[in-house]
Every structure is written in structure tokens, then in C-alpha cells.
Amino acid sequence: MHKASTDELRVIHRIGNVSLPVGNGGPLVPPLNPSYLFAARSENVLWDIVENRRILLIGHTGTGKTSLIEQVAAHTNQGVLRSNMNGQTTVGDFVGFWTVKGGETIWVDGVLPTAMREGLWLIVDEVDFAEPAILAVLTAVLEPGGRLLLKEKGNEVVVPHPSFRLFATANAVGAMGEYRHLYQGANVMNEAFLDRWRVHQIDYLSPANEALVLVRTFGERLTPAMAQTLASIAADCRDAFAREDLAGAFSTRRLLDWTELMLRTSDPELAAGSTIYAKVSAEDAALIRNIIRHHIALED
């Protein structure tokens, strides 16, 4: 009689054509977004997760790099830690540090060894803003075997749990390097570092897919035609950003926020005031208003 192996008994969850193992749950599992769309761009990322590749997602801000990983985790009941390289994250936060508690000196793991030991997924957001010491730590974990040496803790070696996965996001590296001037403070990532990652460029959703997301989110409150119009406005704003006519990008999150308030107020211009115009310069607001007027008749 055949005895099922541990691998055979492990529960899997299917997303599109890819079957992923289900995690152990817990409070670190991201909330599920039932309206989220796993577009065609997702499939190779999913396969790389299954194969335990180190994954670097690059693209403009607001393209959904982090949300892609979080929604995969939400669907597979997998806990996630995030570390944002915003200039405030130190090597101690990332790796760990000694501290005194109750008169006793104890070691506190940072996010990296915590994720490795507990089989969590770690997302290093904006890795192109990370300080060199953190990049050096990451480089060691990216090597085959991926073990972490805690020199500060007597050279303890952290062996990754089989469920551990490592992700990073960046705006201006590799194929996105030509946009580095749009992301002040971003560091140049050398090829040796990039070669240790499987790099995926994540673009904005197509207008058709973004319209579908709007319909899935708001249901009968939003007609398909209006959803397509709003998605086209977002696409035109992104084209303006790529031409550097706009200083900032137009995320799907911003589009959803605008749409929600628009449905509540029945006034696209009023809704845009607090969801779009107030967040940008007067010049950008004027240009975005013109783009909106090209698609929707607004009252003066």
C-alpha cells in the first residue's frame, strides 16, 4: 500500500495555472482583496514563488508590486513581514540587536532572521534606497543555500525554513534605471547584485484589466462603460507621468479612491478634489483636470 509523503499531504491552492502550497496562517497573513485581479503578468512570478526564487519586482510607484505578493500570500494563508527601506530602517532593525530587558541582556531578531526561522515571506520594499550594510546582508542570503550568519550573536547560522521566501521591490533599477531621476535618493544596483534575483518588471494594468477591477470592486454601482472611461483617464495620466509632464504617478489605489467618492457624491470634480488634486501641485492638478475633461464633461 502506498504511503503518502509529507509533500503529497501538503495542501495546495491554485491561482490560474499555478499550484502553490498553503501556509500555516496566523495574524501576519495579509487581508484578502476579493476584487484583486491576477493578470497575465502574475504567472511567472507565481512559478518563481513555487521554485523558491529570490524575486525582485521593479516598476513605477503604484503599479502593484507589493500588493501582488501580498495577495498571493492572502490566497495561500501565508504570513508576511515587510521592511521599508525609507532611510529609517537600520541594520539592527533588519538583522537584530542586543538589548537589556529586566536586567538581562537578550538578543532580538530583526525581520530577516525572524522570517527565515518562522517560514514567513519577507518583502523588502524600495530596496534601491537601502543602505550598503543592509545590501551586504541581503547579498549573503541571496547566495545558494541562503543562510544568514549572525556575527553579533557569536556567529550563529540561521538556516531558512522551507516556507521562507524573499522578495524585494524597486522603482529605478535595471530596466527602470532610466527613470532614476524621478526617484531622488535611489541607489544604483550593480549587475552582480541583480544577478542574484529573478527580476520581473511590473507595469500598470491595461485599461481593460483596470476597468475589470473597478467593476469587480463596485459591482452594479458602476457601469462597464464608466469603468472603461475612468481606466482610460488613469492611463492618460500615467502616459503624462512617463513623459514627465506630471510629477507623480496615478496608482490603481488612487483610481479606486476617486471612484468610490465619485459614486457617493455623483460629482467627478468634487470627488477629485480630495482624492487627486489636493495630493499634487497646482500645475499637476490643472493637467489632470484637463485629462478628466477630455473624457468626462465637467461643470465649471
Rank of each mutant, 00 (worst) to 15 (best):
K101D: 11
G96D: 07
E118P: 01
N77V: 02
D128S: 12
A115M: 05
V80N: 09
V111P: 00
E118V: 00
V80I: 11
E104H: 09
G110Y: 08
G87F: 05
W107F: 15
F129V: 00
L81N: 11
T61F: 00
G64R: 03
F129H: 15
G64H: 04
W98Y: 13
V100A: 10
H75Q: 13
T89W: 01
V124G: 02
V91H: 12
W98R: 11
V95H: 02
F97E: 10
E131D: 15
V111G: 01
V72M: 03
T76N: 07
R117I: 14
V127E: 06
H75E: 11
R117M: 08
W98P: 04
A115E: 08
L68V: 01
W121S: 10
T99P: 00
F97S: 12
D109V: 02
N86Q: 09
D128Q: 08
G59D: 07
W98I: 00
D93C: 09
E104G: 00
A74I: 05
E131L: 08
G102R: 06
T63L: 04
M116N: 05
E70F: 02
F94K: 07
P113G: 05
R117N: 11
Q78F: 08
R82C: 09
F94W: 07
G103R: 07
I69D: 01
E131H: 14
F97N: 10
R54F: 12
K101S: 12
H75C: 15
L122M: 10
R117F: 01
T99R: 11
L81Y: 15
R54G: 01
I106C: 06
T66N: 03
R54H: 15
S67E: 15
H60G: 08
A115R: 04
Q88S: 14
A115H: 10
T63D: 03
A73L: 09
A74D: 06
E70W: 00
L57G: 09
E126S: 11
W107R: 04
R82V: 09
T89Q: 14
S83A: 15
T89E: 14
V80W: 10
G103K: 05
I55Y: 03
Q88E: 15
Q71C: 05
P113C: 06
F97P: 01
G62W: 01
N86M: 04
N84R: 11
D125V: 04
G103A: 05
G103I: 02
L56I: 12
I123K: 06
S83F: 06
R54D: 02
I106L: 14
R82L: 12
I69E: 01
K101V: 12
V91R: 15
Q88H: 14
L122K: 08
V124D: 05
G96F: 02
V95K: 12
E131N: 14
